[in-house]
């Protein structure tokens, strides 16, 4: 219990960010028209690709001889990049189509 309280204490700023981001996330897209649901989902999909930053950090810290970790990390970087790059490009293509229709 004490360790958890300690953890909360050391991460209190992060916890504030979480709480505020939840409200912000809900507010920011609150009035989206239903035609934009799919592109917005796709855009949000690209944004959670930030997870790649974790993959880069983890990869950069692996000792050069630890091949299992290097390979897993490499895989994580590739998958994360796919998420980011693919996500943004697909969203752009969707919105492009959207504009032509209008």
């Amino acid at each position: 219990m004490e360790t958890i309280l300690n953890w909360v204490q050391t991460h209190i700023e992060m916890i504030y960010i979480v709480v505020l981001s939840i409200f912000l996330g809900i507010e920011v897209i609150g009035r989206v028209p239903s035609v934009l649901h799919t592109p917005l989902m796709s855009g949000a999909n690209a944004i959670h690709g930030v997870v790649i930053i974790g993959a880069i950090i983890v990869m950069g810290k692996v000792e050069p001889g630890n091949y299992i970790a290097l390979i897993i990390g490499f895989l994580a970087v590739v998958l994360g990049t796919l998420n980011v790059v693919g996500g943004f490009v697909v969203t752009d293509r969707m919105l492009e189509m959207f504009k032509k229709k209008k």
Binding site: M14, I17, S21, I22, A44, H48, I53
Partner: peptide
Amino acid sequence: GGFLYDNQVMLTGGILVGAAGTLL
């Protein structure tokens, strides 16, 4: 991951999408 590495951009990005995605 944001919590793990004390990384603000992962945290905000992740939670934003988590919240917005749930509402969406």
